[in-house]
């Protein structure tokens, strides 16, 4: 709204200045000088829309020497100022106005113009907002994709992690070895390499998949491996007496795990799992390398098109927003999961 009203006032000022120009040009015609031709040429260029050429012509009118009459100089510079102003080049408008004021500090036209430029000059943050508004739609589309990836991985990896953890502590050796291998492999190689392998490598084995599927599989397996170790640690940190007490009332191993052991791990799991999920939000940026247009890729595209850092700043803010929201959610869950420990 404020933005809109400023626009209106600028239109009003431009109209006013135009009126002044026509009035003053009449007076100039009365006292014709050598520069009349230049002014006429510039006026023609201006009305035909070639404003830069007009500026160049006007620039030819020199600064008057000491004692010389300077009306043409003032007139040319003020006209340049107005052209710059109409081109939204407030900084340049300011420079030419100050040129006039340096020689004629009391020139009222220049003084008034200076005031209206200063009033209209857009602060830096306004530029940021203007860019932000134009970038936001495609960034939000990217952010939505990032969120979708994060949520998919958050659904898959705790389940995968639980199976890997239970497999690791299983007394059945082959299963335990397979789970050990999965953890060893996926924790020991870069996620980026795993994504490349799934998206670019598997097609050579005849397995092709869309980037989204490849990204979810890559992130899902990688995070399952990490969560597997965290869940195993949490299970093994539960007092051994709990398993014995569960067995003593006749529970099987499965019943004891499901009813007694695993529910007690939730509170202990939340801090490290929350950590992993925060890392996950940022790691989704890696899938931009396998043709997924998510937040990082969107920001990168905008940055490369407009060479405008605003896109990157906005992307950083959106990532921060996401991590902040999830941090609060995890804190809430942790509190709720540990409510039985409160005295």
């Amino acid at each position: 709204m404020a933005f809109f009203s400023k626009f209106i006032s600028r239109v009003a000022i431009t109209a006013l200045l135009f009126l002044c120009t026509t009035l003053s040009s009449q007076s100039v015609q009365a006292t014709a000088t050598d520069y009349d031709q230049l002014f006429r040429k510039a006026g023609d260029l201006q009305s035909s829309g070639d404003l830069n050429a007009a500026l160049e012509i006007l620039r030819q009118i020199p600064t008057p020497a000491k004692g010389e009459e300077g009306d043409d100089f003032v007139r040319s510079r003020m006209q340049m100022g107005r052209i710059h102003f109409s081109l939204d080049e407030q900084d340049k408008a300011l420079i030419v106005t100050k040129e006039v004021l340096a020689l004629y500090p009391d020139n009222s036209e220049a003084k008034n113009f200076l005031a209206s430029i200063n009033k209209q000059k857009r602060p830096a943050y306004m530029n940021f907002f203007k860019d932000a508004v134009s970038f936001l739609p495609s960034l939000m589309k990217g952010a939505l994709m990032t969120l979708l990836l994060v949520l998919c991985t958050m659904l898959i990896s705790p389940l995968g992690g639980l199976f890997i953890a239970l497999g690791r502590i299983s007394p059945f050796k082959p299963l335990s070895s397979v789970c050990w291998f999965i953890i060893w492999f996926f924790r020991g190689t870069p996620l980026l390499l795993q994504l490349f392998f799934i998206y670019y490598g598997l097609p050579s084995l005849g397995i092709t998949m869309p980037p989204m599927t490849a990204a979810v599989i890559g992130l899902g397996i990688n995070y399952s491996a990490y969560l597997g170790e965290i869940i195993r640690g949490a299970i093994q940190s539960i007092d051994h007496g709990q398993m014995e007490a569960a067995k003593a009332i006749g529970m099987t191993y499965r019943q004891a795990m499901r009813r007694v052991i695993i529910p007690q791990t939730y509170k202990r799991l939340m801090p490290p799992v929350g950590n992993e999920f925060i890392a996950l939000i940022k790691d989704t940026a890696l899938v931009s390398t396998i043709a997924m247009v998510e937040l990082m890729r969107s920001a990168d595209q905008l940055f490369n098109t407009y060479f405008n850092i605003t896109a990157l700043v906005l992307a950083a803010l959106i990532y921060l927003l996401l991590t902040t929201i999830f941090t609060f959610i995890f804190e809430k869950i942790e509190y709720r999961a540990g409510i039985y420990e409160h005295r």
Binding site: D239, G241, Q242, E244, A245, A246, K247, A248, I249, G250, V260, P263, Q264, Y340, E341
Partner: peptide
């Protein structure tokens, strides 16, 4: 085991229930 009850030195109640 379900026919033989056992009580432990350190109770081992299920803390989440």
């Amino acid at each position: 085991r379900s026919e033989i009850g056992m009580v432990f030195q350190h109770f081992h109640l299920f803390p989440h229930m």
